[in-house]
C-alpha cells in the first residue's frame, strides 16, 4: 500500500494524479563460512583467499567453491594488500549515500597473489588513473575497522612503474 504519511501529488485542479508506492525488502544476509573468514580477516588487516585444488587459482574474496572447476576450494592463503588496476570507471553521477566527491574513480584491482580482481575506490586524480597502475590499500585504523570492504578506505597509487599488460590481461 502507498505511504499515506504525505499528501499525494495533486494537479492544479485538485485531482489526485500520483501516489507513493515504495517497495522495501528487509533482509538479514548471511555471509557464508568462506566469506565470514575473509571478513574477520579484514578486521585484522589481512586479505584472505582460497586456492582451488584443481586449477590452482586463488580467489579473493573466497567463494567456498571454485567458480570454474565446481569443486570445493582448498587451502586458505593470504594475499598482499598491493595490486594492479586492471580496469576502472570515472563516476560523474551523484546518488544517494555517496561518500566521495565527484568525479572519483572506481576500479577493479588484481591483488598480488590473487587470480581474480576485486573492486574498490581509487583515490587518485581521475586524469592520472590508467590500466596497469600499481596500487596499495589504505586501511581504516584497526580500532574502527568494520567486517566489510569498508575496512579498506580506498586504494592509492604506490608510485611504482606500471605493471606490464601480460601480467593482468587475464583479470579484466
Amino acid at each position: 500500500m502507498s505511504d499515506a504519511s504525505k499528501p499525494a501529488k495533486k494537479d492544479a485542479d485538485g485531482e489526485v494524479r500520483r501516489i507513493k508506492a515504495p517497495v522495501k525488502l528487509d533482509y538479514t544476509v548471511t555471509a557464508g563460512l568462506a566469506l565470514s573468514r575473509f571478513l574477520k580477516g579484514v578486521t585484522a588487516g589481512k586479505l584472505l583467499g582460497q586456492r582451488c585444488g584443481v586449477c590452482s587459482k586463488v580467489y579473493v574474496p573466497p567463494r567456498g567453491g571454485c567458480p570454474t572447476c565446481g569443486v570445493g576450494m582448498g587451502e586458505q592463503v593470504e594475499v598482499k594488500d598491493t595490486g594492479t588496476l586492471t580496469t576502472f570507471c570515472i563516476v560523474n553521477v551523484p546518488f544517494e549515500g555517496q561518500t566521495m566527491k565527484l568525479p572519483y574513480v572506481y576500479g577493479l584491482i588484481a591483488l598480488d597473489g590473487a587470480d581474480n580482481a576485486l573492486h574498490h575506490l581509487i583515490l587518485a586524480p581521475p586524469e592520472e588513473v590508467r590500466m596497469g597502475m600499481r596500487l596499495r590499500a589504505e586501511w581504516v585504523p584497526p580500532e574502527s575497522r568494520p567486517a566489510s570492504m569498508e575496512a579498506i578506505r580506498w586504494f592509492v597509487p604506490t608510485g611504482e612503474p606500471d605493471a606490464p599488460w601480460d601480467s593482468y590481461k587475464e583479470h579484466l
Binding site: A21, Y27, T28, V29, T30
Partner: peptide, 16 residues
C-alpha cells in the same frame, strides 16, 4: 558465519 542487515528500498511514485 557473519550476518548483517540488508535493506533494499525503491522509493517509487507512480501516476495513477
Amino acid at each position: 558465519a557473519l550476518t548483517a542487515p540488508y535493506v533494499l528500498e525503491y522509493t517509487y511514485r507512480r501516476s495513477v
